[in-house]
Amino acid sequence: MNGRSPTSLEAPRDEADLVVDSATGVNVSLPVAGAGARSYAFIIDWHIRIVLFLAWFVVATLVYNGSWDLAPPAEPTAGYFGLVIAPGAALYFLYHPVLEIAMRGRTPGKRMAGVRLVTRQGAVPSVPAHLIRNVFRLMDFFPVCYALGLVVVALTKDHVRIGDLAAGTLLVYDRREHEGVLEHVNPAVIGTRLDVSTAELVEELLQRWQTLDASVRQRLARTLLARIEGVAPESISLSESRLYTRLMQLARGSEA
């Protein structure tokens, strides 16, 4: 872009976006996740790992002891190590690499935080990239609690830790919350009284009508109608049912 004004082929660029050139000439824009989303995802994953490890430990120990006793054997035995310790440790330490590969750059924590891993080309990272990213956790963890990793995340432009620098990956937001938006807009009403943004708002308010408090939905409806009519919100004195009907007419393009 360097000094040129953006064209329709280039996304309206946010500083925090990863912009990838594509074969069509229309670039792909991916919002980069920061330290907050990254930490949120990690904390969820860490809790899942701990719960899985403890669940395995408890169940396997009970099976190994053959009684309601969680005490480890006095002398370490191959059976105890092989049944209880080794699989539990594998669950804990292989959680990230295995799930990231299997879920194409996501883990349950990343999914809940609404982020995913991509390469700098916007694609799903390769298996070696996933592995190298996780090997470098040894450095990112240094000296405790991912302190070095967090410092690097704070200092780098794309908010990446050392593992991401090594693997050429970064964390971007998944914009899944917009999937239902197409259901909300009736193309027939665009160009009548509503522009696209207002039509989206009207449809969304109608969809959420029953879930909102009566006072809140009336206030929002009045504000929206005032904006459409170009009058002050106080001048709209319709009852709740009339407000709903009016919004429906606007959304369906059936107003008189």
Partner: peptide, 13 residues
């Protein structure tokens, strides 16, 4: 500034 554009950005990505 519409959410339709956001949907298209997401689908395209």
């Amino acid at each position: 500034d519409s959410r339709v554009r956001s949907f298209l950005e997401s689908a395209y990505a």
